[in-house]
Design a protein around this nucleic acid. Structure first.
Lengths: 348, 348
DNA sequence: GTTTAGCACTCAATACCCACGAGTGCTAAC
DNA sequence: GTTAGCACTCGTGGGTATTGAGTGCTAAAC
């Protein structure tokens, strides 16, 4: 699948130039800008080959060449070299992560902002997955005669809450009893590890409060299933409008309509959780027809060694991969570290 | 400030037509479509008057007229008649508000979705203001050796939480003591009503735990100031791109850059909290230069009689005011009612 | 005095044409 | 294998003509 050195040089030149200018690049341009020591005519011959091999294509006969998806893939896999961050960028990152933060959401948000700011594309951050974190504290608080608030604090530093209906006979004391039982049984357990046996135990424990047991069970069940529908951080959409490929409003509309579907984005990101390193998805490699002219760069961050979420950048296929990959990698590490310190070495 | 009936008819025709077509409307069109029993020539004369009075203007000599901001204002104040909702729309609203909801955020979100769906413009919803609601339950839970989670449940059904640093000497029991004191002192009090005297009382109570008192105070203080920076619901931006006035990408960019500044939107909405009924802000009446070609329709919703937040629609000045005003009014009522039932008649 | 028909005028939008130039592929010479 | 030369393609940009919607004004009709 590798090609000879000169073809590589030319392909690299084409891609580099196209990423920088967004204009189809011709043989003259390459000969002039990238001193490869060969004439335009030779370059043309090589380009004809490259086109036949599927790495580049021509928008129309009298235009230069642009990279194909295959071309980008080759570039990302073999040609691209990391583009180190500038000292200013390093500084910005460092400052961002050393501000005082109050909750996980804030760290997530700050990461997203950095991501879009540094790359100038759209940024997405999937918050830490609930399933892998364990219960720290659970509490039911009466709100009204028929409503109560269920609050669960996880060791990952997230808080989940919801209002539930309760039968009108229930007193505050009842709720406290339930809270106590739930705490005793669930503390330290993860969402994922709540098995039927455990549920039975709780059931047994609560037998004396039979009138509320169904409520409690429903509630548990529901929490289990509903959590994954968490909100994603999405920012820097504006950046993407500065890209020439989105100068026509139709394109913008199709893209925005996709970005409005959070669940779709969640899935795209979640697919990646657990993978090692930085993943680059080019064009149709994102399994989404309307994003075929986009690319995604995604990586997974970890908490206490476990992969819990991922961050990603979305831009046109003509994206500055070298830069983006570096940024994503760097921020993944920083995010992991920030979460670690935020949530203390409160491991177990 | 009122004008004679015929001028009103013509102004109404111009605005109605322009809202529907987004095209400058000429005298012929009016004579043909709106059978006012007068000839184009007469209409032209009247139009010249209306232009002189400032209600309409001409993009260029050989085009029809479009309403000016003043024209829209006159329309909204005197000419517009409510456009009732269709049975299907009523049905949609009814269904949305009778689904089971789990927390206030969900109601907010659903309202926002309805708002953008029914109007086809961008929708904004400001969540219930914290300041006016009172503490129901407060709790500090240890997360790690130097972190704890502070959770506050408000009677408005919202939950606030943040991670705080704690000196490493503190035990879970300490935290429970603090929680107990805070609960005793703050339960039933509103954010706004926490005065210095109360803070002193808490201070006194906690004197024996002197080593953590500063923490607790800082925490309180901080909660007080930081809460208003709450997240706003924003949706249906896509709708607005369908409007012909946003067919050029530059416009889209300036608008989006504004919409990304949540705090700005919050202020725009918050300005309105407390006002009776539905407020319409046309063009530069929104105090924001870059939104001069937009209008906002805003209304305040209530909880237990107190105004706590507001909802609004943002669209081009050429907006279907009749429809939007009806929708906003209707959803405000529904939202108020939904919150009321969600949070129970747990009044005090 | 008000309304209307007629008419000359304006001006954005559209279509069309043409020249330009960037870029190619091919051929033949080096 | 490399390169210079050349004919060919085709999108772009600028200029011009045409069109048509709409106006303001004037004079006649009501």
């Amino acid at each position: 699948m590798r090609m000879d050195a000169r073809k590589q040089d030319i392909l690299l030149a084409i891609i580099t130039d196209y990423i920088a200018t967004a204009e189809p690049v011709g043989s003259r341009t390459i000969a002039r800008k990238y001193r490869l020591g060969i004439s335009p005519a030779t370059i043309r011959n090589e380009m004809a080959d490259l086109e036949e091999m599927g790495y580049i294509e021509q928008p129309h006969t009298s235009a230069g060449r642009i990279p194909s998806e295959l071309g980008y893939r080759y570039y990302v896999d073999y040609l691209m070299k990391r583009q180190e961050l500038t000292p200013e960028e390093e500084e910005l990152i460092h400052k961002s992560y050393h501000q005082k933060v109050r909750d996980v959401g804030e760290v997530i948000q700050r990461t997203g902002q950095l991501l879009s700011q540094l790359t100038q594309y759209a940024a997405m951050v999937l918050p830490p997955k609930m399933g892998a974190s364990s219960f720290k504290y659970i509490r039911l608080v009466q709100l009204g005669p028929e409503q109560a608030m269920l609050v669960a604090i996880m060791d990952s530093g997230t808080v989940h809450h919801r209002i539930i209906d309760i039968p009108s006979g229930i007193t505050s004391e009842d709720l406290e009893t339930i809270s106590a039982v739930l705490n005793a049984k669930l503390q330290g357990r993860t969402m994922d590890s709540i098995k039927l046996t455990l549920v039975k135990e709780i059931y047994f424990e609560l037998a004396k409060h039979k009138h509320i047991i169904e409520l409690a069970m429903e509630l548990l069940q529901d929490s289990l299933t509903r959590q994954p529908v968490d909100r994603i951080y999405l920012g820097g959409i504006l950046n993407i409008l500065n890209q020439p490929e989105f100068h026509n409003v139709e394109k913008v509309k199709t893209l925005l309509s996709l970005l409005e579907q959070e669940s779709l984005l969640c899935n795209l990101l979640a697919d990646n959780v657990g993978r090692e390193g930085v993943t680059v998805r080019i064009g149709r490699e994102i399994r989404c027809r309307q994003m075929s002219n986009c690319s995604m760069v995604v990586a997974t961050y970890r908490l206490k060694g476990r992969p819990v979420g991922s961050i990603g950048v979305l831009g046109p296929t003509r994206m500055d991969y070298a830069k983006v990959v570096t940024v994503v990698e760097c921020l993944t590490k920083n995010l992991s570290r920030a979460l670690e310190t935020l949530l203390g070495s409160g491991d177990k």
